[in-house]
Design a protein around this nucleic acid. Structure first.
Lengths: 121, 121
DNA sequence: TGGGGACATTCGAATATTCGAATATCCTCG
DNA sequence: CGAGGATATTCGAATATTCGAATGTCCCCA
């Protein structure tokens, strides 16, 4: 029989950290901490091509880090509630840090003003 | 010139999460949250072979998550202070959770009593 | 209904990570 | 010194992750 440590269920946190262990995906989370954005916003803000952006978002989606909402042809991404308490706390702490960055807050506001369903491109 | 989001330095957190994004390594951190342990303790507690244990510890060491202290033939591992504030907060939150698990606390106490430089094996 | 934009997925090549076995290193003790 | 225990590193094979390009899918609107 396994010892307590070997039996510890660390799968939720492991899944979360695996998804967050990438610079691009962390930057996506940093932006989404300030509110929902659509794919074209992220693509522009991070200077990524469409394929890479969508694939990285799929990783975050499969890990339960983000959720989507479709609005016409556009898909909006936002941070998802974490059902696991430990994951919730980790993600909360991370976002608290990102939220404290005015430059990012300004950028997100700017993105929403200049692009989106009404003016994406 | 890069946008604020693209210029965000997420390397320290990314490095931390990459190291923590593995179930075995998370279990090691769970044990070390309760105090330093030597390699043979971890090997036994997690039912890992020597090679795997040492290699996973090397990953944590290279990521700055753990530090070592040699005592004769034995090497003790402990959690390292995080110079980066964001990393410090994440690791603190994680350990707070692990510290709240009495079964792990008991196991660590037991390990230290039954193995170690004086009675390893 | 069909063209075009927004997004998702697939593809193949390149790179990285993982594992157990084997080997190397370091330390103690007789 | 020399054996042996504790730990670290190397090795090669298996598996996973990553990327841009190409292709699919879904939706709006003329």
């Amino acid at each position: 029989m396994p010892t307590p440590a070997a039996a510890l269920d660390v799968r939720p946190v492991s899944r979360l950290f695996k998804a967050l262990g990438d610079e691009t995906r962390l930057r996506i989370v940093a932006l989404l901490a300030h509110g929902e954005l659509c794919v074209c916003h992220l693509e522009m803000a991070l200077d990524l091509n469409q394929s890479t952006t969508s694939r990285q978002l799929a990783v975050l989606r499969n890990a339960g880090v983000v959720e989507t909402r479709r609005e016409g042809a556009w898909v909006y991404y936002r941070l998802a509630d974490q059902p696991d308490a430990e994951c919730a706390e980790q993600l909360r702490a991370l976002c608290a840090d990102f939220l404290a960055r005015p430059a990012i807050a300004r950028e997100v506001k700017q993105l929403r003003a200049t692009k989106g369903p009404q003016s994406c491109q």
